[in-house]
Every structure is written in C-alpha cells, then in structure tokens.
C-alpha cells in the first residue's frame, strides 16, 4: 500500500514513533494531536505493518510496582513509508518571514 492513504496526522504519528516516542501519551505530547486521533492512528499503522507494538515485560514491571505499558516500534516497511510520506508532504519546509520582520533561517533551495 502506498503512503497516499496516510493522512497528515498519521504521518506525524509515524514520524514521532520513528523519532523515539514509543508510548501513546508521549506521541500525543510530541505531535500536539489529540489522544482521540493518536491512538487510532497507532492501531492503524500497526495494521498496515508500519509499526509493531509489544508489551513491556510483565514481570519486570510488576517488580517495579507499576503496570506494564504497550510500546510501539518502527518497522522497516514503516521507515520506507515514512521516508516516502515526508517527501510527499512538503508543508514543513523553511519559509521566509522577512515580510513580518522575523529573521529566520534562510529558506533552503526547493527540493527537486
């Protein structure tokens, strides 16, 4: 399946997991999306095979007196899909804010 079906928010979730945010709440924090959209996105990405989820080792967690968490990891398919999606989504590229008197980084030359 091509990444054409991945919405902007889903790509953000995939990107966050790739960047090392492994738990639902952390992904919510990292993306600024609502929990109501992040959790379904995580499940969907797992269905697509872009993420895989595992449970923390129950015994370890119990020993530390805390509940085991479900965490997510990027798969090789996921990495490819993310790379493709990031190339498609051109929204977040540096822009010139000179007109507003804000000195930002110079816009990089447009990607081919």
């Amino acid at each position: 399946m091509g990444t054409g079906t991945l919405s902007f928010g889903t790509v953000a979730v995939l990107h966050a997991v790739a960047a090392g945010y492994r738990f639902g709440f952390d992904v919510v924090d990292a993306t600024g999306l609502t929990a109501g959209s992040v959790y379904p996105a995580l499940d969907r990405l797992e269905d697509l095979g872009y993420l895989k989820s595992s449970w923390e080792h129950a015994a370890t967690a119990q020993a530390e007196g805390r509940p085991a968490r479900r965490y997510f990891q990027l798969t090789a398919d996921g990495a490819r899909a993310l790379d493709e999606a990031l190339r498609k989504h051109r929204t977040f590229q540096p822009v010139s804010l000179d007109a507003f008197g804000i000195r930002g980084p110079r816009p990089a030359g447009r990607r081919p």
Binding site: V28, T34, A35, G36, S37, V38, P40
Partner: peptide, 9 residues
C-alpha cells in the same frame, strides 16, 4: 481530556 480521547479510541 486524554481519557476522553480513550473513549473516542
């Protein structure tokens, strides 16, 4: 608010 997201989920 997060928990409300759980219901949505």
């Amino acid at each position: 608010g997060r928990a409300a997201g759980a219901v949505w989920h």
